[in-house]
């Protein structure tokens, strides 16, 4: 497709469409266009191509494009929620096992089979209270 050699004149012609040209370049181009029929024809062809390519009005992806995006975002949010739920579900059994193990450890350490001991809540016996009071009396 690209086997034609493009001249400096052609480059200058194209430059004039997209970039500022100096007064000297403008003068040169004007003279070339007057005398070079082929270049003038190329100029017409470029103008036609540019005219055809320029979009006259905004394009569109078709009706309900915005709705489809919103739907996709909504769907993605629910997928994330599901992934979080699934992640926790996966480790649910393990978490319950660890919890039970901790409760049993607490129970064994306190040597008591009560709800308070299960949750590691300190329990004071009557003797403990009495010994504290006795200590207080001795120090006062």
């Amino acid at each position: 497709m690209m086997n034609e050699h493009f001249s400096e004149n052609d480059d200058l012609l194209l430059k004039s469409y997209d970039a500022p040209v100096t007064a000297r370049e403008r003068e040169l181009l004007s003279s070339l266009m007057q005398n070079d029929h082929a270049l003038r024809q190329q100029g017409d062809q470029y103008s036609r191509i540019r005219e055809l390519l320029l979009r006259p009005e905004p394009d569109s992806f078709g009706p309900f494009f915005a709705e489809r995006i919103m739907q996709q975002l909504k769907q993605r949010a629910s997928e994330i929620d599901y992934l979080i739920f699934f992640f926790f579900k996966k480790y649910q059994v393990l978490a319950i096992g660890v919890l039970v193990a901790l409760l049993i450890t607490n129970m064994l350490l306190t040597d008591q089979l009560t709800l308070k001991s299960l949750f590691g809540i300190d329990q004071q016996t009557t003797e403990d209270v009495f010994s504290i009071d006795l200590y207080k009396n001795l120090t006062e």
Partner: peptide, 19 residues
């Protein structure tokens, strides 16, 4: 500018018959 020029040159050559 150079890519723009090359693109237009390619299009013109390819469409020269119809233009």
């Amino acid at each position: 500018l150079s890519r723009l020029a090359r693109a237009q040159q390619k299009l013109r050559v390819a469409l020269s018959k119809k233009l």
